[in-house]
Design a binder for these strands. Sequence first.
DNA 1: CACCGTTGTAACCATTGTAGTTACTTCTCG
DNA 2: CGAGAAGTAACTACAATGGTTACAACGGTG
Lengths: 145, 145
Amino acid sequence: MVTTVVVKVKQISTRFSIAVHTISLIAVTPDCTGDYIAGSVNTNPVVIRRIMGMLKKAGLVEVKPGVGGAALLKDPADITLLDVYHAVGVTENNQLFRIHEHSKIECSVGRNIEQVLQDELAEAQALMEQRLAQTTIAQLLEKFK
Amino acid sequence: MVTTVVVKVKQISTRFSIAVHTISLIAVTPDCTGDYIAGSVNTNPVVIRRIMGMLKKAGLVEVKPGVGGAALLKDPADITLLDVYHAVGVTENNQLFRIHEHSKIECSVGRNIEQVLQDELAEAQALMEQRLAQTTIAQLLEKFK
DNA sequence: CACCGTTGTAACCATTGTAGTTACTTCTCG
DNA sequence: CGAGAAGTAACTACAATGGTTACAACGGTG
């Protein structure tokens, strides 16, 4: 028997990488417009505006309505990748891993799997996020030469 | 102005947690059928069969066609969460983070962001996966009392 | 051999997230 | 006022997920 299975998968949204791009750009080119950012990212201006809205809500950037132009509200050295990651909300309830629910409690595995896995996966996620927290936008900018 | 934005997000597929549940169950109840597993997980048997197919391909389990029943091909102490994670292929090309492409190279940020971010995020992902590699199915089973 | 339960798969569907697009309103400054 | 920019709703196309039905293939057992 010949079996062909194409496994399709998912990844964390490009919102995150676009947001990092956006903030870096604002740091390098203060008061740049959304259209300018969209040009560098090479996407639609509305996509940038949506992400800028999230960054505003997170208190990372400030946008001048009417006249246009964006500015950082924090020093690039004080903005970590984790800040941006959280700002664009790429994970539900900050849970990277989704765990199936409603396992049968009659079974010793089903009764415990949710909580045990929850704890294990939370630790794995925490390590990833700690690494994101160690890199600042300022550090990224140093690599853009 | 009142702004309400509901941010919907994504997570790693429950295939992973269901696969861990499945392997744990086989370890505890050798030769159990797919229907039995589906009962404990509380989902459709076909969902289990699909995941079992991936676990078979990864060389983790063996299923007896016709008669039914599954068995582990490795010792539970030699199966890590990372093995299962990779087996069910929840990330594309093993890249957890998706990075936007086609940034404008005329811009210093656009020219460098892809590679710089790629390196940073790969490190964060690696830390998470290393943590998954530190937990075995056997260790999980000890917690199911 | 025929039956029956199990596995292997294909096909389909509803739901959801993503990302792009159009269109229109609102805002500020010259 | 007019121009340019941001805010936002609405729509689209596409893909992943997870459930479901249906059916073929397999392999013991009577």
